[in-house]
């Protein structure tokens, strides 16, 4: 078939703006779950530095656990699948969407449902955590900008929860 299928996203593609905060759907991106006993193995595979400390990010790669990294890259980026190595590379590009929460009230909005102390959450940190009952990966890009990775099926609930709270 020559004509490509179109994507359908689970939340509005138009940003939501409220006083002091905007919430928007980030463009599609490539996501890989990278697993290995040591970050060194991934560095050899990918030829880039990977963060060694849980919670740290470097060049779009976040260390989420002692043997787990999440790589986020522009849509269409492909990486070696590490066949035969003691490394697991799994394509999870479409598993989640990314909500970009931005503005002076961004941290306050996220703390409405997330138990992390965002006043002490440094820029560049990434962690899996929870928003009310929904698991998220929270990444702080700057003082006023966060990325929230959330599995697609939970995202419409999260969108409603964030936009409802933001409009209060």
């Amino acid at each position: 078939m020559s004509d490509l299928l179109t994507r359908a996203e689970p939340v509005p593609t138009a940003p939501f703006a409220a006083d002091g905060v905007t919430i928007s759907l980030a463009p599609p991106m490539a996501r890989y779950s990278l697993r290995a006993r040591q970050g060194q193995a991934l560095e050899t595979l990918l030829g880039v530095k990977v963060p060694k400390k849980i919670g740290a990010t470097e060049g779009g790669i976040a260390c989420l656990g002692p043997d787990e990294w999440l790589m986020r890259a522009p849509a269409g980026t492909s990486i070696p699948m590490a066949a035969g190595l003691a490394i697991a590379v799994t394509d999870v590009s479409e598993r989640s969407i990314c909500l970009c929460v931005e503005g002076p009230r961004a941290a306050q909005l996220i703390m409405s449902g997330c138990p992390q102390d965002l006043e002490l959450f440094p820029v560049g940190k990434a962690t899996r955590t929870i928003f009310e009952t929904v698991e998220i990966i929270l990444i702080r890009n700057s003082n006023d900008q966060f990325h929230i990775e959330v599995w697609r099926s939970f995202s419409s609930w999260l969108w409603t929860a964030l936009t409802t709270t933001a409009s209060h």
Partner: peptide, 10 residues
Amino acid sequence: NVWLTSTTEQ
């Protein structure tokens, strides 16, 4: 040497 990844939503 094996790792598990949820791909339900992929």
